[in-house]
């Protein structure tokens, strides 16, 4: 048995709607080593969200198995609290609660997990400080810019010190500059904490800049079509983006995704 942090074996997911049955994900095998940064990329509707949501037990797979730290997640019962505490989930939208201030939003997982020790509150404040949200910590989320709100979303997901961060196109709605900035901040966080990160994106550049490995997915049915290791030096920064090797990886990935789409047209 491998010592993967997360392992997906033969995952299938069918959605039954009123009119049809959608095969969202077919026979997906994935492995995420502890401390690894892995991206999942693919066209819209290929089941990226479905996969990451199955890992976080927001939905149950139709068949197949999920292991977290070698422990099988039961297909019938909710994932146990000690396992769910290892995971932080970052949504595509900031998903802040508008009636809570930024700080209260960030502290929410501490409340839910019952982490009352003042040490935890200090940790939350340190994260707020680190992401430059100190000035706005008593503001309501609606008063924040999109970038600040997504920052708050990221630190809310890691305030309880999970080993795993599941990120569903977290910066997809942001402008290019803010997105690059947040990408770099994310790399800093990853380097400092060594978390296992599963990162979903539409952007080839983002995937190459951030990850050690990229899963390329295709649609109809959603499935893994390729797996590409990104062998670029670390720490990475924006200078890397203009390098030839970076461009090479982007081309390779774009090609793989293109092939997937072509084969679907046929």
């Amino acid at each position: 048995m491998s010592n993967a942090k997360i392992r997906l074996v033969g995952l299938n997911k069918l959605f039954h709607t009123r009119f049809q049955t959608i095969e969202a994900v077919r026979n997906v095998d994935m492995e995420f080593a502890a401390g690894d940064f892995v991206s999942i990329i693919g066209p819209s509707g290929c089941g990226k969200s479905t996969i990451i949501r199955m890992i976080d037990d927001l939905i149950k797979p139709t068949s197949g198995e999920i292991f977290i730290d070698g422990r099988r997640v039961s297909p019938h019962r909710r994932i146990p609290p000690e396992v769910i505490r290892k995971i932080g989930f970052i949504f595509q939208q900031p998903n802040m609660y508008p009636w809570m201030t930024v700080r209260e939003n960030v502290m929410l997982p501490l409340r839910v997990f019952g982490l009352r020790d003042p040490e935890w509150a200090r940790h939350a404040d340190a994260l707020i400080e680190m992401t430059g949200l100190r000035e706005q910590r008593h503001a309501y989320p609606t008063e924040l810019s999109g970038g600040s709100m997504q920052r708050a979303g990221v630190i809310r997901a890691m305030v309880h010190k999970p080993d795993i961060l599941l990120m569903d196109e977290p910066f997809g709605a942001l402008d290019e500059m803010t997105r690059e900035q947040l990408n770099l901040e994310l790399l800093d966080i990853w380097r400092a904490t060594g978390k296992t990160i599963v990162f979903i994106t539409h952007s080839v550049q983002e995937a190459v800049l951030l990850s050690n490995r990229v899963y390329v997915m295709g649609t109809n049915p959603g499935r893994v079509v390729d797996e590409i290791a990104v062998d670029l030096p670390r720490p990475r920064n924006l200078k890397l983006i203009v390098s030839d090797r970076f461009a090479g990886y982007c081309e390779l990935l774009t090609g793989r995704i293109g092939q997937v789409e072509l084969s679907q047209i046929k």
Binding site: L58, R78, I79, P81, I84, I87, N95, Y97, L108, V112
Partner: peptide
């Protein structure tokens, strides 16, 4: 739904 999912993601 998304707000409920956040709670579910924390096992609330």
């Amino acid at each position: 739904g998304a707000k409920l999912e956040l709670m579910r993601a924390m096992g609330a």
